[in-house]
Design a binder for these strands. Structure first.
Length: 466
RNA sequence: GGCGCGGUAGCCAAGUGGUAAGGCAGAGGUCUGCAAAACCUUUAUUCAGCGGUUCGAAUCCGCUCCGCGCCUCCA
């Protein structure tokens, strides 16, 4: 089965192959750096990360551009209030975003680009639009004339025929000719920061940066453009209007959108006070892996209802995966290879891959892995799993983890070295042998306090860091 | 009002015509000096409701009820 994605543009699941057959040119909408990103943002970025990893797993090279929006209303307002320059203000949150991304093990895109580093490119693009007759000016601002663009609404599947072009619509502080029109270049206002350009003193509108930076680095037609569902309209719709007007070609072949994360069944919003940042969750003791697992485990086109119960469950699920890996690495198995196990491993891998090929069905992919783990554990209990079978099983886990990336613990919570731990275990074993169980239990308890869990198995004792 | 998504066990969730995956929690059990560990087994005669199509529907069609998103702040 071929790799396929749901394309918002066509509202269909379509086979995906990059235009040149080798390199996926992908653009994703990154953060607006006016605050710390919250877990809703991170859900979308985690989806993009899984997408990246799966495309590479399937043998494609990546050229992935992510933008950092570092100029817009809230940034300007907050920066002014703090008497900081835009760059001073945003650098804090840009840095925080990179740290949070690293904590969640989100791969760094090939290019991370800032809007403010591309002002001249944006001005040039707006001038091109002007030459082609797609713009008009009003009170120093430049607007995009939607009526001029035939395909408007094709991504969001909105019918704008009810709002007639040229009709006099009640307009806000900006003097737009048509309610659908949007600003490309905003005239300087009072003491706000501005750029001195041929378009006048001002700053770019929100949508133009994505059109400009994506086409600058990836060419006129992207293979994939991705973001959150709330960007479909107007942001992505406007990007299409700008980009296709400039290039005359289709802007993006595939549009992928991640559904929202809900917190206790409600959309996160400042007024409800139900916004969680990664920092807050980590401060409460949840691990980055558990958060990553939860965000990745619900297929990206489904709303994800985030609750602390589900987050705890994610942590426990990871434990099961890690325990299995530990058993593979430390278990004593008879020599040989069991063809039935090899076959089972191959089946599991095929199911895992087929699930992710199917529009990144992560829930089904996880099920394939857990079913395999259960079967192999049973085989181990029955002595049917042989030493020669471990390589294939570990390979399967490695492939799983190349996408989910949750097996490695984030932090060593103990200062003890492996050797120190082994010494304590030896002491406990001696105590047990002499039937001094009080002492043995005391050592076990002390190690547990330092984050070391001891497990007595058939093959002897093994330990792991909690 | 327009467009779109969804309602599957206590919770999360897969499954889009062939007779209900998986995870967590719960309950039994194995192992153990003990066990909080680990492992196994088990938990939906049923998929919001009512009709219809079909040999057969959670899956297709119609209606109803409920929840959610977007419709120029928004991942």
């Amino acid at each position: 089965m071929a790799l396929r994605f749901y394309n918002t543009l066509t509202q269909k699941i379509e086979d995906f192959v990059p235009a040149d057959g080798k390199t996926v040119r992908m653009y994703t909408c990154g953060p607006t750096v006016y605050n710390y990103v919250h877990i809703g943002n991170l859900r979308t970025f985690t989806f993009q990360d899984v997408l990246r990893r799966w495309l590479r797993y399937r043998g494609y090279k990546l050229d992935h551009v992510m933008n950092i929006t570092d100029v817009e209303d809230k940034i300007i307002r907050n920066a002014l209030a703090q008497h900081k320059s835009i760059r001073e203000y945003t650098s804090t949150y840009e840095k925080a975003f990179l740290e949070d991304s690293a904590k969640l093990r989100l791969e760094r895109p090939e290019r991370l680009v800032r809007a403010t580093d591309h002002i001249p490119d944006m001005v040039k693009a707006i001038e091109t639009l002007r030459q082609k007759g797609y713009t008009y000016e009003s009170e120093g601002s430049t607007y995009y004339r939607i009526a001029k663009f035939g395909g408007y609404g094709k991504l969001s599947h909105n019918d704008f025929s009810g709002i007639r072009a040229g009709a006099r619509v009640d307009v806000d502080e900006y003097d737009k000719a048509d309610a659908r029109d949007f600003v490309l270049w905003k005239a300087r206002k009072d003491d706000e920061p501005f750029w001195e350009t041929p378009l006048g003193e001002g700053r770019p509108g929100w949508h133009i940066e994505c059109s400009v930076m994506s086409m600058k680095y990836l060419g006129e037609t992207l293979d994939i453009h991705a973001g959150g569902v709330d960007l479909i309209f107007p942001h992505h719709e406007n990007e299409i209007a700008q980009s296709e007007a400039i290039s005359g070609h289709q802007f993006a072949r595939f549009w992928l959108h991640a559904e929202h994360l809900l917190l206790d069944a409600q959309k996160m919003s400042k007024s409800l006070g139900n916004i969680y940042t990664l920092r807050e969750l980590l401060a409460e003791g949840y691990t980055p892996e558990a958060i990553r697992y939860l965000l990745a485990s619900v297929p990206y086109r489904k709303k994800l209802n985030f609750t602390m119960d589900v987050l705890k469950a994610a942590g426990t699920s990871i434990e099961r995966l890690r325990n299995f890996k530990l058993r593979l690495e430390t278990g004593k198995f008879s020599e040989g290879i069991n063809p039935a196990i090899e076959e089972r491993t191959a089946t599991a891998l095929a199911a895992f891959e087929a699930s992710l090929d199917d529009d990144l069905n992560t829930a089904e992919a996880l099920a394939a892995v857990f079913e395999y783990i259960r079967d192999v554990n049973t085989a181990m209990d029955g002595g049917e799993f042989l030493a020669g079978d471990t390589a294939g099983a570990l390979d399967l886990l490695a492939r799983f983890d190349s996408i989910f990336d949750v097996l490695r613990p984030s932090a060593e919570v103990t200062g003890l070295t492996d050797q120190q731990i082994e010494v304590r275990i030896a002491e406990r074993n001696a105590a047990r042998k002499s039937r001094d169980f009080a002492r043995a239990d005391r050592i076990r308890a002390e190690l547990l306090e330092q984050g070391i869990v001891l497990e007595d198995t058939k093959e002897g004792i093994r330990w792991k860091r909690k």
